[in-house]
Write a protein that binds this DNA or RNA. Structure first.
Length: 564
RNA sequence: UGUCCUGUGGUGUAAUUGGCAACACGUCUGAUUCUGGAUCAGAAGAGUUCAGGUUCGAAACCUGACAGGACAACCA
């Protein structure tokens, strides 16, 4: 584990510095915050983490580590209406799985409810906050629009003593939801909407997953986030671009708090977009709730748990995160980059195995009936230390239906009547006859083998143009294989004003193949074990597997040279 | 008719802070191969959104356009 971390750190250090790291280097050079680097990853526990969060996790934990700093995990749980412990648990699992650790620095915004309340009282006393009894609609109306200034609330100049009393009554539950809010008194004519007397507290008579019924007023994000950062000693508060316009407000609250040279600083970067997928919690939630996918961990989902189930490794996700980089440019990363990362990782590590997912039976007519040979196969040509295994060969085999063509085109150089090909690690075979059923469908092939080519080479130096994978019919393990394609048919499914993203759902995003045969080596495979099925792609064992039946997910196909 | 942010090959990022645009993905050639994978060698593809300006020299600095994005939740 330590070694893996060091390796990834080494790789990371060779990468050019992104603008945030540059900023950190500058801050370090200036001696800010006593040379400390402290970041935080602050998810709201209202949904499952997706690969965009993975990027943020890698950025926060990775950058702090690189510069000798620390990273806190902090749940931003200021809205009990949407949050749940189910999400808290999944988030912790996902962060750990990605390879990061917050040690004993686990925090919740709700840890600070008391301190936030006291701080609000202080602001009221200083005449910097007031209780507003106007309706949501009126307040919103008074706020104006970005191009036009707002106007002051009639409650804006309530004396502090009175506000203190009112706020205490808010806290005590005297008022109902919507009756009133606490607002910061800043500037109703600011060109920045967030500075027009933003809400600090609203009344929410809902139990909180951690504080239960203690509170009926809850702080807003803007009122909580910077203060939590401050109290935790965060130096660099990294978030996505949509918070850029919040920064003056973040700074305003920190100004009220700051009592030394230490000061947390918010830095924004652009969120991750990937082609042919969606990345907003709202939309992912919709896909789950409305049943377009089978849960948050559906292997087609860009959630961390979905990618994990699909067979993506933490290493591949970290590599991906490094590759896409950190900027403020709002762009779209090609899914091909993600696919490249997992292929690259698995190519080096995955156990090779032969499996046929669309079987066509062949009979080797000159091979003795009842005979079974065990032939040597290499476990991973990229890693000799993984050794060899035995693969059973016999008279009746399955090959991939796709590897035979009755009337071959000139670019097709696999099996056809009269042609000779190699069966990997076993023999050269030649197809002699096609057996069809009454519907003119090919149901079987008859072939002959050349006993001299045992192991896969011909003593006379004869060449074949193709090598096919195969499995021995009697010894094969029958399995279910699930093939996945992109969930959406459009590169930017959420980017059309006139069309709902559901219109772009790919009807063929999941294909279930029930009749697949894998060589016996996989018999004892465990859930999440991954393999390369030679010539087909990388597959892993799905949790739906039972003792009777293995279920495999195709993680990603091999790069397809066929289209050349 | 506002404020802020962002514009570099198809895509994602670089350019040691002003010194003749680099890397990765993708694409396309070959070579090699018991995976049409991998590997190896190579190619095409941007003159940095545009127009001015400063400078011996600009992707970078200035001015002005243009384009895209964010901001008007008692969400985060």
């Amino acid at each position: 584990m330590v070694e893996i971390d060091n390796i990834s750190l080494d790789q990371e250090q060779k990468l050019p510095k992104n603008f945030i790291q540059q900023q950190i280097v500058d801050d370090l050079a200036e001696g800010k915050n006593e040379g400390r680097i402290h970041t935080r990853f602050p998810p709201e526990p209202n949904g499952y983490l997706h690969i965009g969060h993975a990027k943020s996790i890698c950025l926060n934990f990775g950058t702090a580590k690189k510069y000798g700093g620390l990273t806190n995990l902090r749940f931003d749980d200021t809205n009990p209406a949407k949050e749940d412990t189910e999400y808290v648990d999944s988030i912790m699992e996902d962060v750990r799985w990605l390879g990061f650790d917050w040690d004993d620095r686990l925090y919740y915004a709700s840890d600070y409810f008391e301190k936030l309340y006291d701080f609000a009282v202080q602001l009221i006393k200083e005449g910097k906050a007031y209780v507003d009894f106007q309706s949501q609609e009126v307040i919103s109306e008074q706020k104006g629009v970005p191009t036009r200034p707002g106007i002051d609330s009639p409650y804006r100049d309530t004396p502090p003593e009175e506000n203190l009393e009112l706020f205490a009554k808010m806290k005590s539950g005297f008022y109902n939801e919507g009756d009133c809010v606490l607002r910061a008194k800043i500037d109703m004519s600011s060109p920045n909407m967030h500075m027009r007397d933003p809400l600090m507290y609203r009344i929410l008579k809902q139990p909180h997953h951690r504080t239960g019924d203690i509170w009926c007023i809850y702080p807003m994000y803007d009122y909580a986030h910077g203060q939590c950062d401050y109290w935790e000693g965060i130096t660099h508060s990294i978030c996505t671009l949509e918070f850029e316009v919040h920064r003056p407000l973040y700074d305003w609250f920190v100004d009220q708090l700051q009592d030394s040279d230490y000061r947390p600083r918010q830095i924004e970067f652009s969120r991750l977009n990937i082609s042919y997928t969606v990345m907003s919690k709202r939309r992912l939630l919709q896909l789950v709730k409305e049943g377009y996918v089978n849960g948050w961990d559906d292997p087609r989902m860009p959630t961390i748990c979905g990618l994990r189930r699909r067979g993506y490794s933490p290493e591949s996700m970290r590599a991906f995160s490094d590759m896409v980089g950190i900027t403020k440019v709002d762009g779209v990363t090609d899914v091909a980059v993600l696919e490249y990362c997992i292929r690259e990782d698995l190519n080096k590590r995955a156990q090779r195995v032969m499996g046929v997912i669309d079987p066509l039976k062949i009979v080797i007519t000159n091979y003795p009936e009842g005979q079974v040979e065990l032939l040597d196969a290499i476990n991973n040509p990229e890693d000799e230390s993984m050794g060899k295994r035995k693969v059973p060969f016999s008279r009746e085999l399955y090959i991939e239906r796709e590897d035979f063509m009755e009337n071959p085109t000139n670019k097709f150089y696999r099996l056809s009547v009269g042609r000779e090909v190699r069966l990997r690690y076993s023999y050269f075979i030649r197809c002699t006859e096609i057996i069809k059923n009454s519907n003119d469908e090919i149901i079987e092939l008859h072939c002959t083998y050349d006993p001299e080519t045992r192991g896969g080479n011909s003593p006379d130096g004869r060449k074949v143009k193709a090598t096919l994978h195969w499995v021995a019919l009697a010894q094969a393990v029958k399995a279910e294989v699930r093939l996945y394609d992109r969930l959406f048919t459009d590169a930017d499914p959420g980017g059309h004003k006139d069309k709902d993203l559901l219109e772009f759902l790919n009807p063929d995003s999941l294909k279930v193949l029930k009749e697949c045969y894998i060589e016996p080596f996989v018999k004892d495979a465990k859930v999440l074990d991954s393999f390369q099925f030679e010539r087909l792609g990388y597959f892993n064992v799905d949790p739906d597997s039972t003792s009777e039946q293995l279920v495999f997910n195709r993680i990603v196909s091999l790069k397809d040279g066929c289209k050349k």
